[in-house]
Design a protein around this nucleic acid. Structure first.
Lengths: 332, 332
DNA sequence: CTGAAAGCGCTTACAG
DNA sequence: CTGAAAGCGCTTACAG
C-alpha cells in the first residue's frame, strides 16, 4: 500500500522513501549496472509501489507514429495496419475525424509523434503546408489522387492488375467482359480500368462503353451495377469488379438473378482480402499486397524519422492474379 | 533551410537564433497569451524551421494506451479496434509478439503508456503479478478463460446468443441441428454451446452428441467439421457455427456437397462481421457488438487511468439474432 | 510584453 | 557501490 503522497512521485520522493540518494534511484530506473542487488531490489519495490513514471521521456528513442485512416470500417484497413505494425514503429491509430481537425499536425507534434502514415486520403494544400512547416515526415498509402512530387507514397501496380484480371477472362474465352470501377476520381480505379482496356485491345476486342460502369468500392456499389449490367439486352458473361467487396455484391446480384457463378457468370475481384477465400465459390481476384504496402510505408517513414533520404518518393508494389473458383469458360 | 546545428534544437538555441530570451520561446511553444504578435510569429517561424520538439512531455495529459491483439489477422480485430479508438484514448496497436516479451509490462511503462487493453488473451499468473506491481491498469476483452476476480473484463452474452440462434432454427421446424464450436477451452464457445443445449432441451429435443463438434474458429474449422457432419448417415438440416468465419466454411462445404443454402441446409453464424451481409446468401448470425465491447473496454480503462473505481469488474454486452437469408424451414 | 532569476525533475562524471 | 555536485532542458512567478 503506497504511503499517502500529494502529486506524482519523483525521483526525490522515492529516494527519500528508500533512504538512498536521488542518483541511485535514477540508476535503478534506467537499469544502470552499478547498483548493489539489495539496493536495487529495495528501490525497485518502492518505484513499483508508487507507480513511478518519469516525467521526461526520450522521444529520440521511441518511434511513435500515427496511422490515419479515412474510416476504420473495412477489412482492407486491418491488412495495411498489420503491415505497418510489423515495420518496427509504434503505431497510434487515428480516424479521419482527427485529420479534419484544424491543426491535426500540431496535435501530432504535441502528442510526441515522430511522423504519420496517411491511408487512402487526399492531403489538402493546407495539410501539406502545415506538414512542411512542422517538418513532420508523412508517407501516404494508396493516395486518392496524385500527391505532390515531394510527398512520399506507396501504392500497388493497379494497371498491371487490371490487365492480368482481364487477360485471364479473355483466355477463358470471354468476349463480353464488363468492368465495375470505383469512384471515377480515384487514381487506383482509373489505372485498373485502363489495364482492362489494354487487355481487350490486345485481344482485338472492342471496348463497349455500356460495359464500363462506376460505383462505390463497397458491396452495394457492386450489387447495384451488376444488377444493371445483368439486365442489359446482351449481358456480359464476366465481370471484373474494382474490389473484393464489390465482387461479393456482384455475386449476390447474380444469385438473385438465378445465375450460377462461375457457370453463368465469371467474377474477378481486386484486393485478395482474407475473405476472398471464404466466399462460395472462393473468389478469383487480383492480390494487392496490402500488408506489404503497410510494411513498406512504415519502413519509409522510419527512414525519414531518422533523417535518412528516401531512394524513391513513390513505390509501387506488384499485384498478381490469384485464380480460385469464381471464373470459368463461358457457357456454350 | 535550417542553419547548421549539432544535436536537437533546444529552447536556448532557438532563443539565441531568434534574439529573444529563453522564457519567451517557452511561452510561444506553450501557447501562452502574453507575447507580442510579431515576436510570436518570428519565434514560431524559427521553431518550425528547426523542427523543434520539446524534450519533456506531460504524460498526465495524453491517454496513451496499448491494445494488444493475439494476432491482427481477423476482421474481428478491426471491429474491436474501431470501438476502442472511439473511446477517447490514444491507442497504440501491438501484436502478441510484444506480449510474449519477458517484460512487456515494463516496456509499456517505459513507453509512457497509461494502461493496456488485452484482446482474447490468456493473462498468465506472471503477467498479472507484473501488472499488479506496475499498477498499470488493464482491461481484458473477451478473455479466453475466466480472468481473476480482480481483472476487469468485457465480453458478450454468449449463452443467450447460442440460445437465440438455436431457438430460431427450432422455430423454423428443424430437429436435427448441429453445432460447430470453437476450441473446447474457450469460455465463449462453451457458453454458446450450453445455450444451444438449453434451447434444444426447452423444445424437448434430445441432444445428439454426434452433432456437437469442435474446430478452430477459422474458415477451415467450419469447412472440415461441416464436411464430416454432412457425411453422417442422418445428417443435420441446420448447422449453428461458432463464428461467421466458420459459417462461411460450412457454406462452402455445403456448396461442394451439392447442397443449397438455405434450401438443403440452414446455417447460422456468430459475430455479425460486416461481411456476414456480403455472403451469398447473406448470413443469418448472432450479432456480437464488437465495436461496443471495444468502446466499453476503452471507457473502463479510461476510468481506471484516472483513478476512478469501476462499478463492475465484468461487463457483458447483449447479443441479438440477425435474420438474413441463410436459414429457412427444412425440406419436406 | 519581456526577460532575470529561482526552481523542478532528471542525468552524468567523478571522488570516495 | 554510493552520492555530492554540476549541469541540462524546461517552466513560472514576478520585476520592470
Amino acid at each position: 500500500m503506497p504511503p499517502h503522497q500529494l502529486g506524482r512521485p519523483t525521483l526525490a520522493s522515492i529516494a527519500a522513501a528508500a533512504g538512498v540518494s536521488l542518483p541511485t534511484v535514477s540508476k535503478v530506473v534506467n537499469g544502470k549496472a552499478d547498483v548493489a542487488p539489495a539496493t536495487r531490489a529495495h528501490v525497485q519495490q518502492l518505484l513499483d509501489a508508487h507507480n513511478y513514471v518519469p516525467v521526461t521521456r526520450r522521444p529520440a528513442e521511441d518511434l511513435l507514429v500515427d496511422v490515419v485512416f479515412t474510416a476504420l470500417d473495412s477489412p482492407w484497413a486491418v491488412e495495411i495496419l498489420r503491415g505497418v505494425t510489423e515495420s518496427g514503429l509504434e503505431v497510434v491509430v487515428s480516424s479521419q475525424s482527427r485529420t479534419s481537425d484544424v491543426d491535426w499536425v500540431q496535435a501530432l507534434v504535441a502528442g510526441g509523434r515522430r511522423g504519420a502514415l496517411v491511408v487512402t486520403s487526399r492531403l489538402t494544400a493546407a495539410d501539406q503546408r502545415r506538414l512542411g512547416r512542422s517538418k513532420l515526415p508523412v508517407v501516404v498509402i494508396d493516395p486518392v489522387d496524385m500527391p505532390g512530387q515531394d510527398v512520399p507514397s506507396v501504392g500497388a501496380t493497379n494497371w498491371a492488375g487490371g490487365l492480368a484480371a482481364t487477360e485471364h477472362l479473355v483466355e477463358l474465352g470471354h468476349r463480353r467482359i464488363a468492368v465495375v470501377g470505383g469512384p471515377q476520381a480515384y487514381l487506383c480505379s482509373r489505372a485498373r480500368i485502363d489495364g482492362y482496356r489494354a487487355a481487350l485491345e490486345r485481344a482485338g476486342i472492342a471496348v463497349d462503353p455500356t460495359l464500363v460502369v462506376h460505383g462505390t468500392f463497397r458491396h452495394q456499389g457492386g450489387y447495384d451495377q451488376a444488377q444493371a449490367l445483368l439486365a442489359l439486352p446482351d449481358p456480359p458473361t464476366a465481370i471484373f469488379a474494382g474490389s473484393d467487396e464489390q465482387a461479393f455484391g456482384v455475386m449476390e446480384a447474380a444469385r438473385q438473378a438465378g445465375l450460377s457463378v462461375p457457370d453463368d457468370l465469371s467474377v474477378v475481384g481486386f484486393d485478395d482480402l482474407p475473405m476472398a477465400r471464404w466466399s462460395s465459390p472462393p473468389l478469383t481476384t487480383v492480390c494487392q499486397p496490402l500488408a506489404d504496402m503497410g510494411r513498406m510505408a512504415g519502413r519509409m517513414l522510419h527512414d525519414l524519422v531518422n533523417g535518412r533520404v528516401l531512394g524513391s518518393q513513390r513505390m509501387e508494389l506488384a499485384t498478381h492474379l490469384v485464380t480460385r473458383a469464381s471464373t470459368a469458360p463461358p457457357r456454350r
